[in-house]
Amino acid sequence: MEATQVSIRQAVEADRETLTELIVAAFADVTVLRWREERFGIIGGRRWEDWEADLMRTVDLKWVIIAEEAGRAVGFATYELNDATRIGNVSDNAVLPEYRGRGIGGKLLECVLRLMEEAGMEFAQVSTGLNDAYAPARRMYERQGFEPLNRSALYMKNLAQNFA
């Protein structure tokens, strides 16, 4: 299913509130912060939605692009450049669940890679999950020519249960 009416554009300050809502809706089934909360309880007195929204409240919008369909923001991608290593990093990116499977994520990714090339990057790097929720994301990166570099595990511990 090719998404024909999707357009990709640079995020601007007027998008910030939309982006805070978009990140929560698009990350709901793929965020580590939610699983962390389900396992360890509320962190720092705030829900996972608040921590995710914070990312968009503070991000430099210069490094954010938005996918729009019929005037609605349905996906976004953020990235970072590193002039020393010339390795660009594809950071947070997601598409609303009801708009998935139409190539919108792929279009966002292609756009980020082009922007990185224009900025002089020689490599692009991206991290994603290894569980089933991220299988479509992994397939997208592999289709785009990404190859696995290394794998890592994030561990957590409740210090109140310190038995050391």
Partner: peptide, 12 residues
């Protein structure tokens, strides 16, 4: 373990 992840790399 809370999350396992993979880092991918691609030559531009």
């Amino acid at each position: 373990p809370l999350h396992r992840s993979v880092t991918y790399i691609k030559k531009l």
